Every structure is written in structure tokens, then in C-alpha cells.
Simulated scan of single mutants.
Amino acid sequence: MHFEKIDLKKHQDTVVKFRKDSFKASFGDDAGFGDEEDYLNWLVVKTREFPEGFVLIEECSKYIGQLELTIREYRGNTIGYVNLYYLVPEMRGLGKGKELHNYAMQFFENNKVGEYHLRVSTSNKAAITFYHKIGMKEICPEVEGKVIRMKGYL
């Protein structure tokens, strides 16, 4: 497994496809994805700010996943934030999520944060189970109860 920094000139189609598929896995469709141009503009900013946090995961010369990791403020504290943990459907349930998680933990450690958060769809039971397994705890519902904010510690 290899982690490659996202280069939008090279990876634009892949990152959009993966991000849209993450919405399908989480919410049943990609209606909540929003505007593709807005997403790409956000990626331009964030890949400059956190180049090691925005990576594609490659295995056997094929992209199998994507990570989007940032550092942000939350209620007066600096935390790590997982914007996206993504694996293509055929790679889910094979233990590869743990490798993505290990990469994320190293990124957060390198950025000197001891706490990290993410939001997960209430209907994405497999993801919630995974997050509990890696030690994350539920904090509160958000977005009118459609997602759960979770936190973990390094």
C-alpha cells in the first residue's frame, strides 16, 4: 500500500469519483455531494495547506482509497479532523481501513494534535463499527441528526 499526495491535475477525476461514492456509501446516493467545482476549489486550498493530509491510496498500481485530513479549531481546541476515510467497495472489510487509520494517526502526531474528530452518517453502520473498534467515542448528533460527531485520541 502506497500513499500518494493528491495532484489535482493528475487525480481530479479519481478524487471526485471517490468522494461521490463516499456519499453513496454513507447516505444511499450522492445528492449531498454538492457542486463538483466547489469541491475541487476546496481541494486546491486544502491540498496546499495540508499536502500530506490529502492522499490517494495505491495498491498494485491501482487507486483503492483516499484520505482527507486537516487540522482545525473546535470549541477552542486545536484538533485533527478526518474529512474522508474512503476505500473502494471491493477493499472494504479486508483490514485496510486500519492502515488508513495508522496513516492518519501519524499525520496528526506530526501536526502535534492529541485529539481528532470526524462525522459519520447514522446509516453507515460498518463505518460506525470500525470507528468504535479503533477506540473512537460518539460525542453528539449533528446536521439534524443525519450524522454523528465522533472523537478519538492519539
Results as ranks from 00 to 15, higher is better:
residue 1 M to F: 10
residue 4 E to T: 14
residue 7 D to K: 15
residue 9 K to V: 02
residue 10 K to Q: 10
residue 11 H to I: 06
residue 11 H to R: 09
residue 12 Q to F: 05
residue 14 T to D: 02
residue 15 V to Y: 08
residue 16 V to E: 03
residue 20 K to D: 01
residue 21 D to S: 05
residue 22 S to E: 04
residue 24 K to S: 04
residue 25 A to T: 05
residue 25 A to G: 02
residue 25 A to L: 15
residue 27 F to W: 07
residue 27 F to G: 03
residue 31 A to V: 12
residue 32 G to N: 12
residue 32 G to Q: 07
residue 34 G to F: 06
residue 35 D to C: 13
residue 36 E to L: 03
residue 37 E to K: 15
residue 37 E to D: 14
residue 38 D to K: 15
residue 39 Y to P: 04
residue 39 Y to M: 09
residue 40 L to F: 01
residue 40 L to M: 10
residue 45 V to C: 04
residue 46 K to Y: 12
residue 46 K to R: 14
residue 47 T to C: 13
residue 48 R to S: 13
residue 49 E to S: 12
residue 53 G to A: 06
residue 55 V to G: 06
residue 55 V to H: 04
residue 56 L to W: 07
residue 56 L to N: 05
residue 57 I to H: 00
residue 58 E to T: 11
residue 58 E to Y: 05
residue 60 C to Q: 14
residue 61 S to L: 10
residue 63 Y to P: 02
residue 65 G to Y: 02
residue 65 G to I: 07
residue 67 L to R: 03
residue 68 E to F: 04
residue 69 L to P: 05
residue 71 I to T: 08
residue 73 E to H: 08
residue 75 R to I: 00
residue 75 R to C: 01
residue 77 N to W: 00
residue 79 I to W: 04
residue 80 G to E: 02
residue 80 G to D: 03
residue 81 Y to F: 14
residue 81 Y to W: 12
residue 83 N to F: 02
residue 83 N to E: 11
residue 83 N to M: 10
residue 84 L to F: 00
residue 84 L to Q: 13
residue 86 Y to I: 00
residue 93 G to W: 01
residue 100 L to D: 00
residue 101 H to N: 13
residue 101 H to T: 04
residue 102 N to V: 11
residue 102 N to A: 14
residue 103 Y to N: 06
residue 103 Y to P: 09
residue 104 A to G: 09
residue 107 F to G: 07
residue 107 F to W: 04
residue 109 E to Q: 14
residue 110 N to C: 09
residue 111 N to P: 11
residue 112 K to W: 08
residue 113 V to I: 08
residue 115 E to G: 05
residue 116 Y to V: 04
residue 116 Y to R: 08
residue 121 S to T: 06
residue 125 K to V: 13
residue 125 K to S: 12
residue 126 A to Y: 11
residue 127 A to K: 11
residue 129 T to A: 15
residue 130 F to G: 06
residue 132 H to Y: 13
residue 135 G to A: 06
residue 135 G to W: 07
residue 135 G to E: 01
residue 137 K to G: 00
residue 139 I to R: 09
residue 141 P to M: 02
residue 141 P to V: 02
residue 141 P to A: 09
residue 144 E to L: 02
residue 144 E to F: 04
residue 146 K to L: 06
residue 147 V to K: 07
residue 147 V to C: 01
residue 148 I to H: 02
residue 148 I to K: 12
residue 153 Y to R: 09
residue 153 Y to D: 00
